[in-house]
Design a protein around this nucleic acid. Sequence first.
DNA 1: AGTCTATTCAACCAAAGAGTTAAATGAGAA
DNA 2: TTCTCATTTAACTCTTTGGTTGAATAGACT
Lengths: 111, 111
Amino acid sequence: MVKRSPDGLYLDAVFGALAHPTRRALVEQLAVEPTSVGDLADPHDMSLAAVSKHLRVLEDAGLIEVEKDGRVRRCHLNAGPLSEAFGWLTRYRVFWEDRFDALEDHLEADQ
Amino acid sequence: MVKRSPDGLYLDAVFGALAHPTRRALVEQLAVEPTSVGDLADPHDMSLAAVSKHLRVLEDAGLIEVEKDGRVRRCHLNAGPLSEAFGWLTRYRVFWEDRFDALEDHLEADQ
DNA sequence: AGTCTATTCAACCAAAGAGTTAAATGAGAA
DNA sequence: TTCTCATTTAACTCTTTGGTTGAATAGACT
């Protein structure tokens, strides 16, 4: 069996959460400021319940925290788990930068 | 409606592909060297057909290219699309680094 | 107490995902 | 051409996902 990193579970959840455009949009909205569920849902062309479910997915991935403020639920971005995904991608960064460097070299040689 | 980046489709596919541990493992294997489907499948505790399907998902996300070499199909990592995901995450890097900086400050203040 | 308002829960549905086994393809070797 | 090996396709099952609507909860305002 191939080795699996101990934090694989987080990666599943985080990458999975980011795989849906609505959820990425929600993260983008929350990067601006903490926002209530209703306000988060407004711009999206789907029911409030559907957005609520997407928020649950983000919460399960640890990407948001929900604070009760009276009768509204205010969601905050918690970007910590994103660094996990970032870290994973970083390990492969050289593979696309190599190609970029090769292209640069090629262009320079052309001049 | 909330704005959606023009390359959202790629992000769906790339993040979706990375959301499964088997597929991340396949990427890790391919980062070592180009590998045939059979050799890729060996370490995994599932049928060859299942691995073949995972490879298709990676291919659809543009993350691998398959070269026919006689009767074996040799898969190469194509990390380009990873930079797409990396770029998206980078936009939110400040959100977890802020927290990290705050922690650093806190620790320094403690000393 | 009664009524808005915000949000979630429950039940449902269609489509996609992850796996299986068995048959089909395609190319090299005998 | 026949056999074998590498891989994909087909058909099927089971679970998860993404959405719906309608009822339930819970806090704030009269």
